[in-house]
Design a binder for these strands. Structure first.
Lengths: 106, 106
DNA sequence: CCAATATTTAAGTTTACACTTACGTAAGTT
DNA sequence: AACTTACGTAAGTGTAAACTTAAATATTGG
């Protein structure tokens, strides 16, 4: 989970995700969008994002095509929702415990 | 916006938010939960979180009471939702543009 | 006013990590 | 088999930021 936040918390990585939001791209095409950092740097960022489960890689010839993996964002998204209204979240948690109790009974 | 992510992307700060999720706490009470770092370190983290709009401060006597500010999370939350299904997000954006166009006409 | 409590601020140190250059690898082409 | 294309990986460097100790500030109580 924390891996997710760490991965997001770097401007260039965040920009990469924005790019991939629209369409899948090869490592090279992604790197073309960054004039301030070198291609290996982009490659390293892709590694971090992949490791965090935010993107997936697919090989085509000598190229590697990357695309976002939506489910990689879901845990963090849910967690942030928990901050939106702490009291509601606590109620939700309690409700879920009740639910489990019920299931154990049946 | 990026301030928000940066603020979240530090384990101790994240832990502070988890603490404040349940109840508001004074700086001292918060610091008591961290044995690995000193009180000034916690104070600095509180500063970052406050600066990012994730928490708010209230003074009572010599104490400072902190609590989470839910709205500080909303922008990031919305943004992450955008990654959940990129295609839907694009449709949403298009719809919003249409909406604006309509408003300009009327 | 002086002391105590609760906390932040300042200054300097340490550490994590983003970056670069150089090299390695794997697939396709001649 | 040698070359090219498209990458990733390794190793070392520089810098931002998290941390510590020491000092400053603000509020309360005697």
């Amino acid at each position: 989970m924390f891996e997710t936040i760490q991965a997001l918390a770097e401007p260039n990585r965040f920009a990469i995700l924005q790019l991939l939001k629209n369409s899948e791209l090869s490592a090279g095409k992604i790197a073309d969008n960054f004039k301030d950092i070198t291609r290996p740097a982009v490659s390293q960022h892709l590694g971090v994002l992949k490791n965090a489960g935010l993107i997936v890689e697919r090989r085509v010839g000598t190229s590697r095509i990357y695309r976002v993996q939506p489910k990689g964002f879901s845990k963090l998204k849910t967690l942030l929702e928990g901050f939106w209204d702490p009291k509601l979240e606590k109620l939700k948690m309690a409700a879920e415990k009740e639910e489990k109790k019920k299931r154990r009974k049946s």
